[in-house]
Write a protein that binds this DNA or RNA. Structure first.
Length: 342
DNA sequence: GATTGAATAT
DNA sequence: GATATTCAAT
């Protein structure tokens, strides 16, 4: 059994974008200086100015690495053998500084060298766009946390997406729950309609479920136990979150930034980066039980970065764009990962 | 005081 | 409709 677990575990790891691939949304935000300069307050207002500012900022290729969740001691749960390789790898800590003055750190980074500080946080950041990739990350995190522990903060930490805020996650989670609710209704009591296929999207197509409602959600398989709260998979033993982390961050970031810039300049290129989304919910043997971190107390500690062993697929960084929609002209949006969806 | 989850606003 | 923001409850 453990082997199975480690198996899926390895898989899901691999499917996830490495921390390096994730796009840092934070920093590309308008710098305090620029913001002040343009007196940016409302996204609807000085849109063009803001856009320009952001564009400038992104061009500066400023990669901000907001210190990932601090590598906790990770209680090497004595009894349990680490399902995988790499664990307790200190390279994680390589993330330079993370204690001391985060204030100075963030402000310095955000300020892009200038002395900005407060305003940076006050500024509005562009709307976050939940791309299928980002959503997958979200689902994976929730899946491994277990619905029980899947709360915004924890999810956010697990996702380790730079710049992703708790409210971002909370908002998305709210909607995701609604979605799950619908799925449950359809699959369990649903009767006729498409419910059948079971909430599990696993299969190919988007399942019979009238998921048409949510293309985004339909794009990522929903773990089985999500739909059956009554019967948790393996209540007896849980897997301690394995700090996959073996990956250390290099300065690829700059390259990534370049890629991002390219993506912005040449959206067509995105196809090149487009990645097939793995199917988390379709294990070969059909098993899907792993109450991750089923311990409340573990929340704060069990959070680690996950890093797939190897990755060469370049993922474009954020894409800052103006929404050309009628009423919302000038609305800035933040796009993590390519927006291509299947 | 911090977080959560739902309601409400944009 | 999607995401953000607000707000009461924990």
């Amino acid at each position: 059994m453990r082997e199975d677990d480690s198996n899926w575990f390895a898989r899901w790891e691999e499917e996830l974008p490495s921390p390096d691939e994730l796009m840092p949304i934070t920093q590309t935000l308008i710098t305090p200086d620029l913001a002040l300069a343009f007196d940016i307050r409302n996204s609807t207002n000085s849109s063009s100015a803001a856009a320009a500012a952001v564009a400038a900022a992104s061009n500066s290729l400023h990669q901000n690495q907001p210190v990932p969740p601090p590598p906790p001691p990770l209680p090497t749960s004595s009894g349990l053998p680490s399902p995988n390789h790499n664990n307790g790898n200190p390279s994680l800590a390589t993330s330079q500084h993370n204690s001391s003055e985060f204030a100075a750190d963030s402000s310095a980074e955000l300020g892009s060298g200038t002395g900005g500080d407060e305003p940076a946080r006050t500024l509005k950041r562009p709307r976050l766009v939940w791309t299928p990739q980002l959503h997958k990350r979200f689902v994976d995190a929730v899946a491994h946390l277990g619905i029980k522990n899947a709360v915004p903060k924890t999810i956010m930490q697990l996702m380790s997406v730079d710049g992703l805020t708790r409210e971002n996650v909370a908002s998305h989670l709210q909607k995701y729950r609604l979605y799950l609710k619908r799925m449950q209704g359809l699959s369990s009591g649903g009767g006729g309609g498409g419910g059948g296929g079971g909430g599990l999207s696993g299969g190919s197509s988007t399942v019979g479920v009238d998921a048409a409602t949510d293309h985004l959600f339909a794009s990522s398989p929903v773990p089985a136990h999500f739909l059956h709260p009554g019967r948790p998979p393996n209540p007896d033993h849980f897997l301690p979150f394995v700090p996959v982390s073996a990956l250390q961050h290099h300065h690829h970031q700059q390259q990534m930034a370049v890629a991002a810039a390219a993506a912005v300049a040449h959206p067509q290129l995105q196809g090149q980066y487009h990645r097939q989304m793995g199917h988390f919910g379709s294990p070969p043997n059909g098993q899907f039980d792993h109450p991750f971190l089923a311990r409340p107390a573990a929340q704060q500690q069990a959070v680690h970065r996950m890093g797939p062993p190897v990755h060469n697929a370049p993922v474009p960084g954020y894409v800052e764009d103006l929404e050309s929609a009628n009423g919302n002209a000038g609305r800035k949006v933040l796009t993590l990962f390519p927006t291509g969806d299947d």
